[in-house]
């Protein structure tokens, strides 16, 4: 079984930044990513609050940080982590295609969009359900669509779609879906992707990994970084900052 000093779960901005710091500390590091490096920010076209790179796209920013981590010696592989167990040598990491051993763990699994309720999904029937207006909006040029949700993201999705669709309905969680809407755009919040790790670390009632600014979880040797941690502000810079802290604490733990 392959052994690493640190295994990072998730190659979003938090995980990739952690990989940069662990590599620079001279430790071996593997980042495991289930889908695509960059995480949730890859859908965003214009980022205006990432210091030093005005209006960079999420895709470009992600590729840059990915290359930087790789250039510093971090290994990055695509595999979905299903379970992590404490063993005498450290931790056993069980992924879909392979198993690994690590001295310390950094969870940087981020958050997924909250899924549409069952009732509304049934209501939608065969109509496409999208969680990203900037990705799919243009496919509904001149057609009526509906946005579900009441937060800031829903507001942004509506503004974006108003320039494309013939009509944009706005409904809330559990309202009926308008009959003539040809696609359903959903923006009803996000859920931390921590389900596989409920036995490993303490989660709060909403599923976030409980940890303070030192990124230490309830289990010694397991650290957490980014949107999946209990915190006030979930942004790119705070995800990156967590990555630095978690990596430094993980290296200190290893000694």
């Amino acid at each position: 079984m392959k052994k690493y000093d640190v295994i990072i779960v998730g190659a979003g901005i938090a995980g990739l930044t952690a990989a940069i710091y662990v590599s620079r500390a001279g430790k071996s590091v593997l980042v495991l990513e289930s889908t695509m490096q960059g995480g949730q920010i890859i859908n965003t076209i214009n980022i205006e609050n990432w210091p030093g790179d005005f209006k960079v796209s999420g895709a470009e920013l992600s590729q840059k940080i990915y290359k930087q981590a790789e250039g510093l010696g971090a290994e990055i592989d695509f595999d979905n982590v299903e379970k992590i167990e404490k063993i005498t040598e450290g931790f056993r990491v069980v992924a879909e295609d392979d198993e690994y051993i690590a001295g310390a763990i950094i969870l940087a699994v981020g958050a997924d969009p909250r899924k549409l309720s069952e009732k509304q999904t049934q209501d939608a029937g065969k109509r496409p359900i999208s969680y990203c207006a900037t990705c799919d909006g243009a496919l509904y040029k001149g057609k009526p669509v509906v946005v579900v949700g009441s937060g800031n993201t829903a507001k942004h999705e509506m503004e974006y779609l108003q320039n494309i669709a013939s009509k944009v309905y706005h409904i809330h969680h559990d309202d009926p879906i308008p009959e003539d809407a040809e696609a359903v755009f959903v923006a009803i919040g996000r859920v931390p992707a921590t389900g596989n790790f409920a036995d490993l670390v303490d989660l709060d009632e909403r599923g976030y990994v409980v940890a303070g600014e030192d990124c230490k979880t309830s289990t010694p040797g397991v650290f957490v970084a980014g949107d999946c941690r209990t915190k006030e502000i979930r942004q790119l810079v705070t995800a990156a900052a967590d990555g630095a802290v978690a990596a430094t604490e993980a290296c200190r733990y290893l000694g």
């Binding site: 490096q37 960059g38 890859i42 999420g58 895709a59 590729q63 900037t134 990705c135 243009a138």
Partner: peptide, 11 residues
């Protein structure tokens, strides 16, 4: 794909 789509750029 489309030029304005981030995940497409990643692909």
């Amino acid at each position: 794909y489309a030029d304005w789509c981030g995940p497409c750029q990643m692909m």
